[in-house]
Design a protein around this nucleic acid. Structure first.
Lengths: 232, 232
DNA sequence: AGAATAGTGTCTGTAAGACATTATACA
DNA sequence: TGTATAATGTCTTACAGACACTATTCT
């Protein structure tokens, strides 16, 4: 009954990295290396192995992999549900520790990154097939973000730089897939106490809008009531 | 960049197994084997390694370990957040895939199991020190159950046999640590559509109470509003 | 009969939902 | 001056919260 008695499954992290771009929710994919034992040269979620020498924890593993493969550090990260079984990797038993990562639209990243619309992966027959259980991981990450948009301020972290409330509302509308009442949205954000005015403002379209920043980094507010009503 | 290029951390499952007993929320601990390389003969959460030959997935790993070490199968299981770092195990890098498990009060289990009050582990200085990060895992599991008791019917699964609504309310009160209004609680449970009458009833204390069972096994209902009010 | 528990009726308060209005910038 | 957007005011409604009440069973 000592530790080395059993072979341990292969264990990796995977990053489901989302951004808002062109009025779409997009996910980052990268092409697997040509010398990979399975799924060589195929588009997949960025991920990788723990470096037991350099990583102190799985967070380090995630950030290192994103830096190496996508060349950016996310504005927000959160753990998703682990997944481990004999069939997700053709090479045998494996476990993944997947993360949801949010990044702001203007963040620059490696040109290797292929951004695809998340909606391409929500149906039964996606436009491209992803290796492993990566489509399921994207679906789970979206499911989480979608629901959190209804009862938390997690989508706030699609912004790193100051933002206007209208921009923020647009993000929520894209995630939820339906328009929201402006006043209700603003009341809700105010009630959450999740943002504060910078004092600055910017001219957007034909009006002047106040700029806001996060009050708490990486700590969404949770509402006591789920957002029900939305237009249509 | 092939798979076997890096050593993989040790990966285990841990079970935070809760029951309601003696008006308390209790957690199951077992004594580690005397030949363990670390923390031999110490009380800890039941857990163990993946058997890549016999387990199809981590669920199998959990159930097999619970059967072997606690001699029972839980009424409800759910994944908790994975944890992986260099310091949680004195032997080095390790990852745990922890599960929350609920079992009914009357379930019989191995006599080896030591049931302890969860409240013993919620403060800074617990009555006994647990190895690894097991105290944190218990705290996280309780935190989840506590909050889910406020916005879901997850605590329903402390029952496997038919139960009365008063018994159910008592379970919620123990988890939440405060009394609830009877009528409000019953309205909420009815609204959730999570239980149905068996048609049977039983005499409890000085009155006759209807018996209920789950409508959906393993699928809690989620309310659109968080339970705020409770007595005191 | 009295006590304890199961089960129900109903009023209130609060925050989400719906919609209207005002203010501001620009062409 | 007209139009599009920012920002706010206010009425309605749904449901949690509080509490009173009735029904049933046992001592």
């Amino acid at each position: 009954m000592t530790k080395q008695a059993y072979p341990t499954p292969v264990c990796t992290i995977d990053a489901v990295l989302f951004r808002i771009h062109d009025e779409q929710l997009q996910v980052a994919l990268i092409r697997r290396p040509s010398d990979a034992r399975v799924y060589a040269n195929v588009l997949a979620l960025p991920g990788g192995f723990v470096h037991v020498d350099s990583d102190q924890n799985l967070n380090d593993t995630l950030l290192r992999n994103l830096k190496e493969k996508v060349a950016l550090s996310p504005a927000y990260i959160a753990k998703l549900e682990f997944e481990g079984n004999i069939s997700r990797d053709p090479e045998g038993w494996s476990i993944t520790c997947p993360y949801l990562c949010l990044i702001d639209e203007s963040a620059s990243c490696s040109e290797q990154v292929c951004w695809m619309s998340v909606s391409d992966f929500l149906g039964e027959s996606p436009s491209i097939n992803l290796p492993f259980d990566h489509q399921q991981l994207i679906q789970k990450a979206f499911h989480r973000l979608y629901h959190r948009a209804k009862y938390s301020t997690e989508p706030n972290y699609f912004f790193r730089e100051p933002f206007t409330l209208s921009e923020l509302q647009t993000v929520y509308e894209i995630v939820l897939g339906k328009p929201l009442h402006k006043k209700n949205f603003r009341d809700r954000i105010e009630e959450s106490d999740s943002v504060e005015e910078t004092g600055e403002s910017k001219i957007v379209k034909r009006s002047r809008a106040k700029l806001y920043t996060h009050k708490q980094p990486q700590k969404p507010h949770f509402f006591s009531r789920v957002l029900q009503g939305a237009l249509d």
